[in-house]
Computed example of a mutant assay.
Amino acid sequence: MQAVTVTPGVPGSLRLVDDHPEPSSDEGAILVQALAVGVCGTDHEIIEGAYGEAPPGERDLVLGHESLGRVLEDPTGTLQPGDLVAGIVRHPDPVPCPNCAVGEWDMCRNGRYTEHGIKALPGFARERWRVQPRYAVGLDPTLAEVGMLLEPASVVAKAWDHIDRIGARAEWQPRSVLVTGAGPIGLLAALLASQRGLDVHMLDLAASGPKPELSAALGATYHNEPVNQLDFEPDVVVECTGAPVVVLEAMCKAAPTGIVCLTGVSSGGRTIDFDAGALNRALVLENNVVFGSVNANRRHWDLAAAALARADQGWLASLITRRVPVSRFAEAYQQGPDDIKVALEFAR
């Protein structure tokens, strides 16, 4: 069968393999026909050789962690043939740590977790894959064109879950949210905010194109000026750029008792002249919280699946700005200026 692979740590090793082995039954009882995988920045970094880890004893890693497939067989009865399904990316470590032991593997403390298409587990960019029932998330049939958005949606579902948990420290009645960065994570974070009835503000450098239009379709107010020039203080900030200046300005912008969730990952290596003392003073005196959030556990995947099923399917489809057949796989991994989400398609 066909599979898209790389040799981790070797830039330029991206290739389409025509005779990749069928998935082993050790991977799980549920056999899935791949429909598509989403492409994200993590894939680009693995292709560039920045990181990635092949399964034990293997040289190559199958890419793809934003999955969408259709069940071919499930002897466990968890799902039925024909059901739409996505595979959860992260699996708990084998020790396990206290969090992995209770299903909170997104909060793994010892780093021995594994991840499909990223770390020691084959990814979903192959014609067929297998998954264990506990890591198989059934999708509403209406998500047949957009189900590969479930993985990024699970990331923001976790972010909002943790925002709620932190907010519960006091009387928490947030009214406004600022989302910085109108990429897939940012737009999905704004979607979940709009479903909560919040006053949504989005900030991005793009002054035209699909991002302002997609924001407007959510009823959000769109900004493309620097964060420190905004004339309001949001109760919640969801930072999705990882740009150091934006991160710091977002931390300074939150309202008293505000919560800032950092989902963007900075590349590092950049020094900024910044008054850290003033930031510390504001955070302490205003009882603000800044926290980081990455990955998701089963609870968040289920929350995300429900959120996507409630969303306008036309709006979700608009997030996918390019659909590339596997026969032209290399095009899917070439970043375009107007890309929001690219889908590599295997079958329909």
Rank of each mutant, 00 (worst) to 15 (best):
N224L: 09
V200D: 02
P226H: 00
K211C: 11
G209N: 03
K211P: 10
Q195G: 06
L192R: 09
L203W: 02
R196F: 05
D199L: 08
P210C: 12
A217T: 13
H223R: 06
G209Q: 00
L205F: 11
L192E: 12
L203N: 14
T221Y: 04
H223I: 05
S194R: 11
V200T: 01
G219W: 03
L198E: 04
S194T: 13
V200Y: 00
S208Y: 14
A193F: 00
A216D: 12
P210T: 13
L205Y: 13
L214Y: 03
P212M: 03
L214M: 13
G197N: 03
E213I: 14
A207Y: 10
Y222V: 08
L203T: 07
L205I: 13
A220T: 06
A206W: 07
P212L: 07
R196D: 06
P210K: 11
G197L: 01
A206H: 15
S194Y: 03
A217K: 08
L198R: 01
E213G: 10
A206M: 14
H201D: 07
V200R: 01
G209E: 06
N224K: 08
V200A: 00
G197C: 04
S208T: 12
K211A: 09
Y222I: 09
G209W: 01
A217I: 08
T221P: 10
L198I: 08
E213T: 12
Q195Y: 01
L192A: 11
A217S: 13
R196G: 08
A220C: 11
P210H: 10
L214Q: 05
Q195F: 03
A206N: 10
G197R: 00
M202Q: 05
Y222P: 11
L192G: 02
R196M: 05
D204A: 10
A220R: 02
A217M: 14
E213P: 15
L214F: 05
S194M: 06
Y222C: 07
Q195P: 10
G219N: 06
M202Y: 04
A207E: 14
K211R: 15
L214D: 06
N224A: 08
A207I: 08
P212V: 01
R196Y: 07
H223M: 08
A217F: 09
A220F: 02
H201L: 02
L205P: 14
G209H: 00
Q195W: 01
S215E: 08
N224R: 11
G197Q: 06
G209Y: 04
H201P: 02
A220S: 05
S215N: 08
P210Q: 15
T221Q: 12
K211F: 13
D204T: 08
A217W: 06
A193R: 00
L214H: 05
K211E: 10
E213L: 15
S208A: 14
H223K: 00
V200P: 01
S215Y: 04
L205M: 14
P210L: 14
T221A: 10
L192H: 06
Y222H: 09
A220K: 01
E213H: 15
G197K: 00
Q195R: 02
A193L: 02
D199I: 06
E213M: 12
T221V: 14
G219K: 07
L203C: 12
G197F: 02
P210D: 11
G209S: 07
N224S: 11
P212H: 03
G209K: 02
D204H: 04
P226C: 05
A216K: 09
P210N: 13
R196T: 03
N224W: 05
D204K: 01
Q195N: 03
T221R: 15
P226T: 04
S194V: 09
